[in-house]
Design a protein around this nucleic acid. Sequence first.
DNA 1: ACACAATGTGCACAAGTGTACACATATCAG
DNA 2: CTGATATGTGTACACTTGTGCACATTGTGT
Lengths: 209, 209
Amino acid sequence: MSERTKRKPGETRDKLMNAALTLVGKGRHFTSLGIREVTRQAGVVPTSFYRHFRNMDDIGLQLVDELGLVLRRMMREARANVLQADKLMEESVGIFISHAQANRSFFLFMAQGLAGESRAIQEGIRSEMRYFASELANDLRRLKLVDHLSDGDLEMTCDLVVRSVAFSLTDLLGVSAEDEYQVEQIRKRTTRFLQLIFVGAANWNNKRS
Amino acid sequence: MSERTKRKPGETRDKLMNAALTLVGKGRHFTSLGIREVTRQAGVVPTSFYRHFRNMDDIGLQLVDELGLVLRRMMREARANVLQADKLMEESVGIFISHAQANRSFFLFMAQGLAGESRAIQEGIRSEMRYFASELANDLRRLKLVDHLSDGDLEMTCDLVVRSVAFSLTDLLGVSAEDEYQVEQIRKRTTRFLQLIFVGAANWNNKRS
DNA sequence: ACACAATGTGCACAAGTGTACACATATCAG
DNA sequence: CTGATATGTGTACACTTGTGCACATTGTGT
C-alpha cells in the first residue's frame, strides 16, 4: 500500500552496475576498477557491494548479460528496418553506429572485455559475438542472398563481418560522438569493409576447387 | 677496463620493462598494474622506477616502441620467406602465428592496449598497425598482385587484413600454445579470412560502377 | 501483525599503494 | 685521480583498498 517505497528491490544493484558502466564510460578500464571506487560512484557504502556481487568479476559477468540484451535490441531494430537488399549494409552499419553511440559505455565495456584479464568475461563476450554472427547467418539465408555458400562458408563470412564491425567499434569509441566528420569516415570505411567481404563471398566458390 | 661491471647502464630499465611484460604474460592486464607490483617482479626497490619512467603510462609507451621492433622483425621474415604468390597467405599467417607465440607477452600487451585506458598508448598501437598495413600495401603492389586496385582501395584492403589478423590474435592468445588442435583451427580460419578478403579485392572493380 | 530474510550502514583493521627525501654507490669526462 | 652525474637503496607517510562484523532498516509471506 505504500505509495512510494524508499527502497526498491534491486535498486542498489542497478546503481552499482550503472556506476561501473559510468566509470568505464569516463575512460576508466573495467579491470582497473575497485569495489570502493564503484560503490563511491554509486553513492553507496562499500560493504553494500557484497549484498549483490561476490567480486568485480561477478559484476562484470552480469554486465555481459545486459550487454546481450542491448545486442538483441540492436538486431531486432536491424531486422525491422533493413528491407531492401541493396541498402542492406549501409543501413546495418548506420544502426550499429547509432546503437554504439547510444550505449557507449556498454560497447566500451565490450571492447575492453575482449582482451580483459577475466577469462570468464572474455568468454562471455566472445559467446555473445558468436551468437550474433549465427543470427546474422540465419537472416542472410532467409533473405536468399547467399544461396551459393555452404553453411560453413556462410558462417565464416558472418564471423568475419562481426569481427570487422567489432573492430570498427574501437575506432568509433575513440572519437567523440560530436565529431561528425570522423564518425562519417568510420561509417564509410566500415561499410566498404563489409562490401568487400560480401564481394568476396559472392565470388568464393569460383575460386575454390 | 672492468671486465664485468656490476651495474650495466639501462639494466634496471630493461628489468622493469621485462617485469611489466612478464606480468602481462601471466594474465594480468597492463592497466591494472601498479608501480610497486612491477618493481617487485623486477626484484628492484620501488623508488628505482622513477629513475627511468615518470609513471605507468610512460613505461607503456616505451613498450609500444619495442613492440614496433618486434613487428618489423616479423615483416622482415615474411618478406624473406614468402616467395611464391600462391602460398602467400598460408605462409604469412604461419609466420604471424609463430611470432605471436614467441612474443606472447608483447602481443598480449598489444591486444590489451587497443582498448586500454591510456589514449596515448592506444594511439601508439594504432599507429603501429597503420604502418604495418601500409607496408603490406607496398609489398603487394611491388609483387604486382593487385594492379587493378586503386591506391585507396588497396589501402582499405590491407587495413581490413591487418584488423582481421589482429582480431585472430585475441583468439590465439586465449588458447595455450601447446593446444595444437586449437592453434591449427585458428590458423585455418585466419587464412580463410584473408583468402575471402582477397577474393573480394580481386573482384572489387567489377562490382563498383 | 509478526517473524524472517533481504538489504543497507558504520566501524575497524591489516595490507598495499604512490611518491618524497636523504643517502649510497657506480660510471664517466676531464 | 677527481669531481660530477646517473643510478640504486632505505625509510617514511599519508591514502586507499578489500573485507569482516555487528547492527539498523525494509519488504514479504503467512
